[in-house]
């Protein structure tokens, strides 16, 4: 009799772990993508994703019943990734800020070099397009990449980005303008990206 009961009702811990595994499989790609676009580093993004899910596990009973769980995970992943890059930036500012400020500054890019959005998008396979765009984003310096990701992927306003990154609004706007120009230049200049994104030759 007791054996029957055991078979029919598995231990709570086992059920919880199984449910959490299913839950994690549903959201791990989104959490990892969020972190890797901000950090531009797979190993760091995996650490952050792990931390996000450990926090989720702590509150799993509450979260699993919440319809806003996706938003919660995305917010936590964004916050942890931002904390990471902010800490990293503080550590490195003294040693590397001057050099990185000059990297990939897109202000010199001529406007004629940018194709129309339709030309860039074409009918390219979405996964290939994602690979090309992520690779180009990862080549941007952090002070341009992070605000761009927050604006275009996390849908934050300029004001919110400035507040989160503890920077002035004009600096954020300038960084984003240069970042967009640099990103467009990288996409236009890279032969692989040109082919993938079907960018017509301007030369």
């Amino acid at each position: 009799m007791n054996d029957d009961l055991n078979v029919q009702t598995p231990p709570t811990g086992v059920t919880r772990a199984a449910n959490f595994t299913v839950f994690m499989r549903s959201y791990q790609d989104m959490v990892f993508s969020t972190a890797v676009r901000i950090t531009a580093n797979d190993a760091q993004a995996e650490d952050i994703a792990q931390e996000v899910f450990l926090r989720a596990y702590r509150d799993f009973d509450r979260l699993s019943a919440s319809p806003a769980v996706g938003g919660w995970l995305k917010t936590v992943a964004t916050n942890l990734a931002l904390n990471h890059v902010t800490r990293y930036r503080r550590r490195w500012r003294f040693f590397s800020e001057f050099r990185r400020d000059g990297d990939h500054d897109g202000s010199e890019v001529p406007e004629a070099a940018f194709p129309a959005a339709d030309d860039l998008l074409g009918d390219v396979d979405a996964h290939e397009r994602r690979r090309v765009v992520d690779a180009a984003l990862a080549r941007l310096p952090e002070h341009q990449r992070v605000p761009l990701v927050l604006f275009h992927f996390e849908e934050m306003s300029y004001e919110e980005i400035a507040r989160r990154l503890e920077a002035s609004l004009p600096k954020i706007k300038t960084d984003m303008l240069r970042g967009r120009a640099a990103l467009a230049r990288l996409l236009v200049a890279d032969p692989g990206a040109r082919e993938t994104l079907r960018i017509p030759d301007h030369e």
């Binding site: 129309a116 998008l121 994104l197």
Partner: peptide
Amino acid sequence: LISGVVAGLPTRRAPLTLE
């Protein structure tokens, strides 16, 4: 232009080791 390029990009697959 950039909004158009990044719109609707699929997510990256998480590493197999994460789980």
